[in-house]
Design a protein around this nucleic acid. Structure first.
Length: 571
RNA sequence: GCCAGCGUAGCUUAAUGGAAAAGCAACGCACUUGUAAUGCGUGGAGUGUCGGUUCGAGUCCGACCGCUGGCUCCA
């Protein structure tokens, strides 16, 4: 709280400095935010990041002057006189309820502000803050409004805390999945291919396969049936599903052939619905659970793309459950329970859960929305889960539960999503025959547990800083012979491990052991096995564990036993 | 899409408007290696694309493509 006040006060000092350096500036808002503050300005002429040091310097001078923050409560009429040249402030004055407003004066800078503030800039550590970046931001966050120039700053109580934060930022950069992806040779993006369309290199493709295989096994055990559906579909299909009415902007333009328009699929559901409709369904068949690693394409606006976590082509671990209204709660419960287990398996133990309710643009009846929302709440409560409501955050066809997982640096990423849909069954006139022989409408659940393989791998990489657990590592073991005389034995070891199902690699290039160790550590290989004359004689290997170093000599059979256990436990 | 910035070899980076450099990687030769880089050598880019300004453009201007950080958006 104290820190928020300090940050907010600094935003005023920033505005004060800008007022002096750029006369004629119109002021927007300047709140405290996580780790710092910002202020929005309409400047008389554009500025760039190079100007920040100049502004920061002026701020330092102002802070040293021990400027006091003085509050005054004045009538709205008086405020309108003071801010007569400040259109954004005038707009705010109109919106404030009551007849009076409060203003803060610090030196020659007056701002419309509720406060509170520090008493004087004496309380600010002049080296505890730093201007960081400049960005465009729409007035009041609405893209129909003019775009203002936002200046961001970091602020902490002391210089040391600021430095700690900057250190943490560097750590985050080190974990950036886009950099790790390049370094570990997992995937690339190519300008000529197109933005947001990753190419998976051999090691990345294996990683995808490991994740898919795991989910395939698990879901098959849970009586899911697998589908494989086309990447494009006719206009009529997406017209009927409602995608063309609600999400046309986010779809790739259609391909026209033989007077027919085809769209790249932005979702798999219409295809799964067709599979459901391929037969007459009885209540005895329900629930029917269809799963697919479905690759979808969405025309994300150019400015939002971000490596694997926001791509234009990506593969969802998608599934659709068709069930009776009576089965809904139980199915949601099962999905949620298993979803959480999956996240845990991959190493994510912290997450935030959100329940998203009806948005402004929606289809279906209010009654159905209420029913669906209540079913989701039921599942959450049954599992004793804490959750937050995201008002109006639902999809156009139904409410949803989203799980945002926390990575090792505490950042949140949305992966799991569970959505109830009363509407698509309506549009496609889905039915099943109930025990009285009458047609009934099934309910549909959309769910993705890891969300998309791309985003999930992006998050996994950042979470583990590239050092994936053994079971997920594309290359698990390197076998390094000491001398050329040991190559034969090294090959034996490598083949033995490969036969046991491990992803092992023989490193017999003419390089020093040191060089290969260095390479292995950089490539985050979980185990490096050094074999020389000594090991050859005793049929053993010298084990170096990633980040731990040399852990000693061990018989090969014993080593296999150890890593088998490690893989089974998914450590 | 909007605001600001960026784009030089596979990667990381250098080059006051005046001869496109270096390290790593790759390749070749020698070395046969015991836990984070063995040595020497050889190729490799006309600077994202297109157009313009200039005697001369990696450097300045415009459009497009792509990337980064925000804003808005995210089924």
């Amino acid at each position: 709280m104290r820190l928020d006040i300090l940050r907010h006060s600094l935003s005023h000092i920033l505005a004060y400095a800008v007022q002096e350096l750029y006369p004629g500036t119109k002021f927007g808002l300047g709140p405290a935010i996580e780790n710092g503050f910002y202020y929005d300005f309409e400047l008389p002429s554009p500025i760039s990041e190079n100007d920040l040091s100049k502004i920061e310097k002026r701020m330092h001078q102002l802070v040293r002057k021990n400027i006091r923050f003085e509050k005054k409560v004045i009538s709205k009429e008086e405020a309108e006189r003071i801010f007569k040249d400040q259109p954004y402030k005038l707009e705010l004055i109109k919106e404030i309820p009551g007849k009076t407003v409060s203003i803060y004066q610090s030196g020659n800078f007056v701002d419309l502000c509720k406060g509170p503030h520090i008493k004087s800039t004496k309380e600010i550590d002049p080296y505890g803050f730093k201007l960081t970046k400049i960005a465009g931001a729409y007035w009041k966050g609405d893209e129909k409004n003019p775009m203002l120039t936002r200046i961001y700053g970091l602020a902490f109580e002391t210089k040391k805390e600021l430095q700690n934060f900057i250190e943490r930022q560097k750590e985050m950069e080190r974990r950036d999945h886009r950099i790790l992806g390049k370094k570990l040779e997992l995937f690339i993006f190519d300008e000529e291919v197109g933005a947001g369309l990753p190419i998976w290199l051999p090691k990345g493709a294996i990683l995808r396969k490991i994740i898919e295989d795991y989910l395939y096994q698990e879901l098959t055990n849970q009586n899911y049936h697998w589908l494989s559906t086309p990447h494009i579909g006719k206009r009529d299909l997406f017209q009927r599903s409602g995608h063309l009415d609600f999400y046309k902007e986010d779809m790739y333009s259609p391909i026209e052939i033989e007077k027919e328009k085809y769209y790249l699929k932005p979702m798999n559901c219409p295809f799964h619905i067709k599979a459901y409709q391929s037969k007459v369904r009885s209540y005895r068949h329900l629930p029917i659970k269809y799963a697919e690693f479905g690759t979808v394409y969405r025309y994300e606006r150019s400015g939002v793309l971000h490596g694997l976590t926001r791509a234009r082509g990506f593969t969802q671990d998608d599934a659709h459950i068709f069930c009776t209204p009576e089965q809904l709660s139980e199915q949601l419960l099962k999905i949620l329970k298993y979803g959480l287990k999956t996240l845990k398996t991959f190493g994510f133990k912290d997450y935030n859960i959100y329940l998203s309710t009806r948005p402004k643009k929606y289809v279906g009846t209010l009654k159905n929305w209420k029913r669906a929302t209540n079913s989701l709440k039921y599942a959450l409560n049954k599992l004793n889960l804490k959750y937050q409501i995201d008002p109006e955050g639902g999809v156009f066809y139904g409410p949803k539960i989203d799980i945002k997982i926390k990575d090792s640096l505490g950042r949140l990423w949305q992966c799991t999503t569970i959505q109830v849909d009363f509407n698509l069954p309506e549009k496609f006139e889905l039915n099943y025959i109930d025990r009285k022989g009458k047609k009934q409408r099934p309910i549909m659940i959309h769910r993705a547990l890891i969300g998309s393989i791309e985003r999930f791998i992006g998050v996994l990489l950042e979470h583990y800083a590239g050092a994936l657990p053994l079971w997920l590592s594309p290359e698990q073991i390197w076998v390094i012979p000491v001398g050329s005389g040991n190559k034969k034995y090294a090959k034996e070891v490598d083949e033995k491990l490969t036969k046991q199902g491990f992803r092992s690699k023989l490193k017999d290039e003419n390089e020093t052991v040191s060089k290969k160790i260095r390479e292995g550590e950089i490539q985050k290989i979980p185990y490096l096995l050094v074999v020389g004359n000594k090991e050859e004689k005793s049929k053993s290997v010298r084990v170096r564990k990633r980040e731990k170093g040399d852990i000693g000599e061990i018989k090969i059979e014993r080593f296999i036993k150890t890593i088998n256990k490690e893989t089974e436990k998914k450590l």
